[in-house]
Design a protein around this nucleic acid. Structure first.
Lengths: 133, 133
DNA sequence: TTCAACCCTGCCGCCAGCGGCAAGGTCAAG
DNA sequence: CTTGACCTTGCCGCTGGCGGCAGGGTTGAA
């Protein structure tokens, strides 16, 4: 096949990887972590629909935000773009609230750290530096 | 000895640990990483001067700011006294700026993630929830 | 037919920042 | 003299997010 699947509506793992800027290895890892799923072709190859691209991109975004795979799992219902499909169950809500609190905590801690670093830099350079924000 | 060394001008590892809110284990780790050094008493015990307290606190600050041990090593010349005390090297500045940028990125991404989650929650609950911030 | 480019599972490795434990030595207090 | 609080070195373990390799199978193209 070698790279022609674009118009068929499905992709295999390699293509999904390059399309999302990751690796096949990482994608298998996400699948094992329960973040994505895949159909299988008759030969055993993983087959993804095009939604997967969005989904994986969202995952990567959250990971880049400093979330763990576990954290990301909480966002699963929202990962396919439709935010209205968010956690309907009480349990889901509770988990989501917890995660929200954790996120806020982390943001606060990192913001504090950043401010300290920035202040130190300013002192160290006599205010001669304007850090690119 | 049991806790009386305060007026002697030197401390052993346990005291340094509690004084800096870390553990002896971590301090040995920092030493092995080349971030701090120690004299040795005749019995082999590590002996630190009181400067070490400041030094370790600064190290912890930088670590809390999201730097790695490797990053911190670059700041070694500045680690005694106030961080602003010694003129930081160009390399130190560069690392700090890089780290600052990374921190800002993460904070932004996480804030975005949080906002999305919060919005989703609000929609999912019809605005009935006021997440504790 | 044979090659190269894919794909599969499974497992070990790596980095960071320590934690924890074993197996000892040291020293002051009781 | 014993206890126990402290110290030493050394090494294995853990978490997270993969990387990489071995040892296979499946295609499409030349």
């Amino acid at each position: 096949m070698i790279g022609v699947a674009r118009e068929v509506g499905w992709v295999r793992i390699g293509e999904l990887a390059t399309a999302t800027g990751t690796t096949a290895r990482a994608l298998r890892h996400y699948e094992q972590a329960g973040l994505i799923s895949s159909e299988r072709a008759s030969n055993g190859y993983r087959v993804y629909d095009e939604q997967a691209v969005v989904r994986v991109r969202n995952i990567r975004h959250l990971l880049a935000a400093g979330l763990t795979l576990d954290d990301v799992r909480v966002f699963l219902p929202c990962l396919d773009g439709d935010v209205a499909a968010a956690p309907p169950s009480d349990q889901g809500l509770r988990v989501a609230l917890e995660r929200l609190a954790v996120l806020n905590q982390r943001i606060a801690a990192q913001t504090e750290a950043r401010d300290r670093l920035e202040a130190a830099l300013r002192r160290a350079t006599g205010g001669r530096i304007r850090p690119a924000v």
